[in-house]
Design a protein around this nucleic acid. Structure first.
Lengths: 114, 114
DNA sequence: ATTGAATATAATCATTTGCTTATATAATAA
DNA sequence: TTATTATATAAGCAAATGATTATATTCAAT
């Protein structure tokens, strides 16, 4: 069969991880654009530590990987995760979140990280 | 497009709900077989109130519906839920759980509810 | 009517979660 | 070297979660 199944317990963990509005939105955004912590801070109007902690969970689960670029750390979806296919299927059911990055650009806050 | 997207917040809630080993297994089982509380009690080797409370959450979210049959209440997937397509996609990534019902039958515990 | 079986609900409690504040680290710029 | 910016980490705390025990409800059988 073409569907790759994974351990049920692991899937439950992934779903718990994505069962959070902030993290789910992050992943949806990262599906189309890499981003840094400071951008998420703006988008979610919350504290930097809060964002860092969300990101760490996603990173610990292997869903996201980081690349340092100067003083910024750019986060992106880790496409080689065994859960990537599952996550992709999930994201199809979510409305596009590009408007959030658009808002940032209008405020001139997106460029600040590049 | 053919994909039906739903509110991101609602999806986060559904994922949180399914981000629990017990509930996720329940849904996977219900995808192929209706079941009653007493069967889940046997399968998960946990207390009856614990199972009832899990079921209530699934019911409150509209993922599951109940049908009384004598003294038993039979639970089944609610296929008209707006989240049914999402759930179906999810379940494809999970290993089959039929062995759990098979074990029940071998112990003669499945028939007890019919 | 009474008993028993299946299920639900309520109260309680320990654990987990997600935030906050405060502080540390790492890279850049002056 | 010192200051600044981006990010991480730690500690503390309130709220949410999932179990347990005890009790209520509902239907069936006697």
């Amino acid at each position: 069969m073409s569907e790759s199944t994974v351990e049920l317990d692991s899937v439950a963990n992934i779903l718990k991880l994505l069962g959070d509005k902030t993290r789910l939105t992050m992943i949806k955004i990262l599906d189309t654009h890499d981003a840094c912590v400071c951008e998420f801070v703006e988008i979610f109007k919350t504290s930097q530590p809060a964002i860092s902690q969300h990101i760490r969970k996603l990173k610990d689960a292997g869903l996201v990987r980081e690349t340092r670029r100067g003083q910024w750390i750019i986060y992106s979806l880790s496409k080689d995760s065994p859960y990537y296919p599952l996550v992709q299927d999930l994201l199809l059911h979510l409305p596009n979140q590009d408007f959030r990055l658009k808002e940032l650009e209008e405020q001139g806050l997106r460029i600040s990280c590049e």
